[in-house]
Amino acid sequence: MKSEVKARPVSPARGRRLGALVFLSPGLAYLVVLMLVPLALLLSDTVFQRGRFGGIVYEFTTENFERLLDPLYLNVVVNSLKLAALTTLIALLLGYPTAYLIAQLPRKWKTVALVAIVLPFWTNFIIRVYAWIMLLSGPGLVNSGLKALGLGPIEVLYTEGAIVTGLLYSYLPLMVLPLYAAIDRLDPQLREASANLGASAFTTFRKVTFPLTLPAVMTGSLFVFVPSFGNFVIPELLGGSKSIMVGNLIRDQFLKARDWPFGATLALALVVALVLLLLAQSWMARRA
């Protein structure tokens, strides 16, 4: 203690630089080595060729990007976009009314309703997928229900419907939470004013409530779309081998086909698509 009191005071600027060095360098070094270097490696792999037995041959090629446009792979990308978009749309149709009603609940029930929304989200991801394998498979609950109605049995597991169900189940809470936060913040007087001026409940929603919550709609949609688009576990376990998504394709390039350069190119396309979406979202949020 004594020596510190006597120590010559360090100039604030120098102290700050020293502090920055001490506090930042370990964490940043860690992130650079384990995140930025891998990203750089992936990026550089996209212009090289695959070796005959896996591995990479360091000769320049644009072949990987040309293959991206091959209808075979383009279809997988379009299919992933379609399934992720469908999931997002259903999440919005279920999530908006849910968030809207939660926001109207008395304080005590609000907390209960919100915790009930996030609880399933905190259970193990694989277990959540497993629950749907059980419900959707041949003798599972869905077909038992259909049988009771005199219908079925139908093949539900290993269909695109099963994939969308699994994605929805995994990411629906991410839609409800931002919507709830935005709806809860709305000034009720705005809606009252609209109603007093003779607008119907639907017109009020269309002209007042919905436009004001549009940024949250975008945020929630992004939260659902992004993890759905790049997913490979749900399509594999619930979709079987029939319909693959871009995530499965990337996984297979790395673990099965051993074509790392093409896998890296697909991953780059995935990241670019997501960055474009993020930019579009922040652009729309600023205009709103």
């Binding site: 964490g27 940043l28 992130l31 650079v32 080595v33 384990l34 995140m35 930025l36 270097v37 891998p38 990203l39 490696l41 992936l42 792999d45 992004v226 993890p227 790049g230 997913n231 490979f232 995530g247 990337i250 996984r251 790395f254 790392w260 896998g263 890296a264 991953a267 995935l270 990241v271 997501l274």
Partner: peptide, 21 residues
């Protein structure tokens, strides 16, 4: 941005990136 990036990057991209590293 660098400090936040691992939380935003898709887990699949982190996974294959580390596999390559």
């Amino acid at each position: 941005a660098i400090a936040l990036m691992p939380a935003v990057l898709p887990d699949l991209v982190i996974g294959i990136g580390l596999l390559v590293l």
